[in-house]
Simulated assay, not measured.
Amino acid sequence: MTIEEAQKEVDQWINTYGVRYFNELTNMTILTEEVGELARVMARKYGDQSFKEGEKDNIADELTDILWVLLCIANQTGVDLTKSFKDNLVKKTQRDNKRHISNHKLNSNKDEQ
């Protein structure tokens, strides 16, 4: 599925089952909440915290929840994420094409840091 197809699928789902989009501010708040849920799982899986009883490692589901809300926000604000992503990739490539390669922190052995 392409990004364009995903945007269309979300729009179709919203218009069929969701009645309407939540307003932009509500979706921004939901996005923040979903990122927090991902952060909780990451802290337990990769950080020093442990999972509480009943919690599970559901990184894929949390990432997909974030993607869903991002697609909603893009749809309701008229952003073509396919075009925007391509433009952003060009921007990053032009800006950072030597930056990371010449970063000694990224290229040195971790034991030397």
Rank of each mutant, 00 (worst) to 15 (best):
M1H: 10
T2P: 03
I3K: 06
E5V: 14
A6H: 12
A6P: 01
K8F: 12
V10G: 05
V10K: 05
D11C: 05
Q12P: 00
T16F: 06
T16R: 03
V19P: 00
R20D: 07
R20T: 08
F22I: 00
F22G: 03
F22N: 11
L25I: 08
T26S: 14
T26K: 13
N27H: 07
N27R: 12
M28C: 04
T29K: 14
I30N: 15
I30D: 14
I30H: 15
L31H: 06
L31F: 09
E34I: 00
V35I: 15
A39E: 08
A39D: 09
A39G: 04
R40F: 10
R40G: 03
V41Q: 03
V41F: 06
M42F: 10
M42P: 00
K45H: 09
K45G: 02
Y46T: 01
Y46S: 01
Y46I: 00
Y46G: 00
G47S: 04
D48Y: 04
Q49K: 14
S50N: 12
S50I: 04
E53A: 14
E53H: 08
E55L: 11
E55C: 09
K56I: 15
I59T: 10
A60R: 07
A60C: 04
D61W: 01
D61G: 06
E62M: 05
T64S: 12
D65E: 02
D65K: 02
L67M: 12
W68D: 11
W68Y: 15
V69K: 08
L71A: 08
I73G: 03
T77D: 00
T77M: 07
T77P: 00
T77W: 02
G78M: 06
G78L: 11
D80H: 04
K83I: 13
S84D: 11
S84H: 13
F85Q: 13
K86L: 06
N88L: 08
L89K: 09
V90R: 04
K92S: 09
K92Y: 12
T93Y: 12
T93K: 12
T93W: 11
Q94S: 11
N97K: 10
R99D: 08
H100S: 10
I101L: 14
I101F: 15
S102T: 05
K105W: 09
N107S: 07
N107P: 00
S108D: 05
N109T: 02
K110L: 03
K110G: 01
Q113P: 00
